[in-house]
Every structure is written in structure tokens, then in C-alpha cells.
């Protein structure tokens, strides 16, 4: 069978589908000071998965606010700097108007994912951390 670390090189999704892959990628991103990008990506996926059943609404609102405050609000943060201004205003509007939608972070997540696919992921595959692991 193909060893996991070779699968990681196939696509970003293959890497993010493996616990050890995530761990190593996060170690690399931490070195580059951009681990928040990965955390944000997973936070968006997790947010989408919170069920919309009654009683969860308050939790969703709290979570949306937490994600907004931690990653989007600070314009100097690594995540905030990679997200388009229009996308940020959209999220801000949703939070301010308490309009909590499961897809409200989708566009921002896509932008961060594109950034990782074009930038940090290829760098990771060439990094000492990955090469030493293999």
C-alpha cells in the first residue's frame, strides 16, 4: 500500500484527511507563523457541521462570533490579511445582524484554501520537515 506521506503529496485534501499529515503540516505552518490559517480552515468546516437544531442556535452564534473575533477582526492577523475585504464585510454583517448561516464562512474558507494550495502547501512539500519525515 502507498505510505501515507506519499499520499500527502497528491493534494492538500489528502494531506488534511490524515491526522499525522495535519500534525506535520501544522508544525511547518507554525514555523512560518501561519498556523492560524489551518486552524481557521478547520474552524470553518466545524462551524458548518454544527447542527441547526433548536438550542444550538445560541451555540452557533457564539461560535460565529468567536471565529470572527479571533481570525477576521484583527486586520493584521495572517488569516484576515488573506481574505478579501468584501468577504470580511459580508461576515461582519452576518455577525452584527445576528444572521447566522451555516455557509457564512464558506467564501473565506475557500480564499484561505486557495492561498494554502498555491503557497504554503507546495512549500511544505519542499520543506526539511516533510523531507526528513519521508
Amino acid at each position: 500500500p502507498t505510505p501515507p506521506y506519499l499520499k500527502w503529496a497528491e493534494s492538500l485534501h489528502s494531506l488534511l484527511d490524515d491526522q499525522d499529515g495535519i500534525h506535520l503540516f501544522r508544525t511547518f505552518l507554525k514555523q512560518e507563523d501561519c498556523a492560524d490559517m489551518l486552524d481557521f480552515w478547520f474552524a470553518c468546516s466545524g462551524f458548518r457541521k454544527v447542527e441547526a437544531s433548536d438550542g444550538k442556535e445560541e451555540k452557533k452564534l457564539k461560535l460565529a462570533k468567536a471565529i470572527y473575533r479571533k481570525y477576521i477582526l484583527d486586520n493584521n492577523g495572517i488569516v484576515s490579511r488573506q481574505i478579501k475585504p468584501a468577504t470580511k464585510s459580508f461576515i461582519k454583517d452576518c455577525v452584527m445582524k445576528l444572521h447566522i448561516d451555516p455557509a457564512m464562512f464558506d467564501q473565506a474558507q475557500t480564499e484561505i484554501q486557495t492561498m494554502m494550495e498555491e503557497n504554503t502547501y507546495p512549500l511544505f512539500l519542499k520543506s526539511d520537515i516533510y523531507l526528513e519525515y519521508t
Partner: peptide, 20 residues
Amino acid sequence: IDSEDDLLQECISSAMPKKK
């Protein structure tokens, strides 16, 4: 603020793949 961080951590973990 602590509970907000916990909520965020829980959310991040829930999206990660489970051990195979």
C-alpha cells in the same frame, strides 16, 4: 473569553479526521 476559546477548539477538533 476562556469558554470562547474552548468552543473554538472543540469546533476545530470536530472537523478533523478521526484516527483510522
